[in-house]
């Protein structure tokens, strides 16, 4: 599906990502974790073809991404990023219909088809925004806006989802709902998802694979049980971390231990 080989990205005279290789597989969620400035979001933007690479390649269904046009990429890769500030009044439905742009027969003109509307209404229901679809985006809470962003990404029907901190503004229950939606896409539609997150426990619970990064490099890449060990996490985050079994799922559960700093 989507594959990055030996990706190196440099900008502003700084190397942000060095020699990272990863591959998204159908039906699987991959989480990227790591400290601030590890190059997680940069890697995600590079996989979408937005940031240029210094070396390495990005292959979408086997084809180099730079050979594909934007609309054909957007039909296959959807991105959920930090929400941009909206300065124009736009309703939730209009916002979500933006996800259907790549399917339009003409890139500039044209109207939404019945199918576009059906898809939009169905993802609005899925993201529990049904009662808000006629409301303006500016009237929504942070969490509702985040769900609208997710709805727009789902409306693209892209089989690959790239999510950059999708749960940042969400409360506990909506965090779980949102990642369950991603999980459902992967299970039912054979989609693949890449999630950049700071929430290691959420990654542990939902991800099939975890890519752990530090200073632009891959530290570890594998199943949560392989990556989330106290030794590896301590090296990366430079803080003592307890790992035990989650009482319900049995997966690794992470507890940072804040020790007083003394010499």
């Amino acid at each position: 599906m989507l594959e990055g080989r030996n990706i190196t990205v440099a900008y502003d005279h700084r190397i942000a990502v060095t020699d990272v290789t990863l591959s998204l597989k159908q039906g699987e969620i991959t989480a990227i974790i790591g400290p601030n400035g590890a190059g997680k979001s940069t890697l995600l933007r590079t996989l979408n073809g937005q940031l240029p690479r210094s070396s390495g390649s990005v292959l979408l269904d086997g084809e180099p991404i730079e050979r594909l046009n934007r609309r054909s990429i957007s039909r296959r890769i959807a991105v959920v990023a930090q929400e941009a500030e909206l300065r124009f009044p736009v309703t939730v439905l209009e916002f979500v219909l933006g996800g259907r742009f790549a399917w339009a027969t003409h890139s500039g003109w044209g109207w939404e088809t019945e199918r576009d509307l059906d898809v939009a209404e169905s993802v609005i229901r899925e993201t529990e925004l049904g009662s808000l679809s006629a409301r303006l985006m500016s009237e929504l809470s942070g969490g509702e806006r985040q769900r609208a962003l997710m709805a727009r990404a789902l409306a693209t029907e892209a089989p690959i989802l790239l999510l950059d901190e999708p749960t940042a503004n969400l409360d506990l229950s909506h965090q779980a709902t949102l990642l369950s939606l991603v999980r459902a896409r992967c299970d039912q539609h054979r989609a693949a998802a890449l999630v950049v997150t700071h929430d290691i426990n959420l990654a542990s619970e939902f991800a099939d694979n975890i890519l752990l990064m530090k200073q632009g490099r891959t530290v570890n890449n594998g199943r949560p049980q392989e990556v989330l060990t106290p030794e590896i996490l301590r090296d990366v985050f430079e803080i003592r971390i307890l790992v035990d079994a989650h009482p319900v799922t049995g997966g690794p559960r992470i507890t940072p231990v804040h020790e007083p700093i003394c010499d």
């Binding site: 979408n48 937005q50 934007r70 609309r71 990429i73 957007s74 039909r75 959807a78 991105v79 990023a81 941009a84 909206l86 124009f88 736009v90 209009e94 916002f95 933006g98 996800g99 742009f101 790549a102 339009a104 003409h106 890139s107 500039g108 003109w109 044209g110 727009r152 693209t156």
Partner: peptide, 17 residues
């Protein structure tokens, strides 16, 4: 239609095609 998405942000517009 392109301008509608551009209005929401260049990065969003890029992502959407």
């Amino acid at each position: 239609r392109s301008l509608n998405l551009l209005m929401l942000g260049e990065r969003d517009a890029f992502d959407l095609g």
